[in-house]
């Protein structure tokens, strides 16, 4: 019972992210959303499992593939969808768009578009915790491809040196845009990169949300209790193209179908059934999620467009000089 009750909200989040992303893709195809749209479909268990192990007051940083993480943190689907639609009610007031979700109320410190730079930002948030003597930790997500850029290494180096309460999570989805790992890195076990920076590490499967939560919790505990940073490599896979404009010709249909057998949403659903939850109750949950996502789309469709005043007023922060 306890296990089932714990899993229900996680399944709900997984399913919510999945349905949110599917609707986002649909709106994009209809021209309601523009720019780059990087979907999280296939990787949902990473953000949901991580969030289940995090405290609400911990700091979270993500790349441009950020919708799932914001939703897992508790951002409202309405605000997220409105952001994609470029509306004033969006989580970044329509100024950031898909790649730049921010929701400080839920300690989601943003989606970043330039590879690597946000690792040091997360280390900086962790630095503040150490400075203030509080026990909030910082978590930073990045892709496998991002491990090749200097920003990642400098962030890791400083976090290791200063034993910062940071968890760096590599979401290894096997590709950096169209490039497989074999052509981006000489060492494919990313945890080896922790060694040189004096960091702990762990490597695990990212499809079963409970497994993710369990491993995340260990790293988070270490950071919170003064044990320093950890580098995590989570083995995952994206079921869609890199972004909406990527037809994904670099991988085979067979590979994709094989990977889809380990669909994190389906795995969690099956786990609920195995734990004795019945189909009707799951269907009721699904219907709730469906209504929430539809509501988000309706809200975004009808919301006010982004405002010029907001654009001008947010160039500089207000002063209290």
């Amino acid at each position: 019972m306890a296990k089932r009750d714990e899993l229900i909200p996680l399944y709900r989040q997984l399913h919510l992210i999945r349905r949110f992303e599917e609707e986002a893709a649909r709106a994009y195809a209809k021209g309601r959303i523009g720019g780059f749209l990087h979907l999280y479909i296939g990787q949902e268990a990473v953000a949901v499992g991580a969030n289940a192990a995090l405290r609400a007051d911990d700091y979270v940083f993500q790349t441009y593939r950020d919708h799932g993480t914001a939703l897992a943190r508790g951002s409202s689907p309405r605000a997220c969808m409105a952001e994609l639609y470029g509306k004033d009610a969006g989580c970044s007031r329509g100024l950031g768009g898909s790649m730049h979700f921010f929701d400080v109320a839920n300690n989601f410190y943003g989606g970043y578009g330039i590879i690597g730079g946000h690792v040091a930002l997360a280390a900086g948030a962790a630095y503040k915790s150490k400075y203030a003597g509080d026990d909030r930790i910082a978590m930073c997500f990045l892709g496998d491809g991002a491990t090749n850029i200097g920003g990642f290494h400098e962030g890791m180096s400083l976090a290791g040196l200063w034993k910062l309460p940071l968890v760096v999570v590599i979401e290894n989805n096997a590709y950096a845009m169209g490039t497989p790992m074999s052509r981006t890195t000489a060492v494919t076990d990313f945890t080896t990169k922790a060694v040189g920076y004096g960091m702990a590490s762990d490597r695990f499967d990212g499809h079963d949300v409970r497994v993710v939560q369990e491993h995340m919790a260990k790293a988070i505990d270490r950071a919170r209790s003064g044990g320093g940073p950890t580098l995590l490599e989570v083995m995952t896979y994206r079921f869609r193209g890199h972004s909406m404009s990527d037809p994904g010709k670099y991988r085979t249909k067979e590979e994709l179908e094989e990977r889809k057998k380990r669909d994190p949403v389906k795995l969690a659903r099956q786990a609920l059934l195995d734990l004795g939850m019945n189909e009707e109750d799951i269907a009721a949950l699904d219907a709730e999620v469906e209504a929430e996502v539809q509501d988000a789309v309706d809200f975004a469709e009808n919301a006010e467009p982004a405002k010029a005043e907001a654009m001008w007023q947010t160039v500089m922060a207000p002063e209290d000089l």
Partner: peptide, 14 residues
Amino acid sequence: LDVPMPYATNLEET
């Protein structure tokens, strides 16, 4: 215009 580029298309156009 002297601003970081906003995402929303109605603003970007201006």
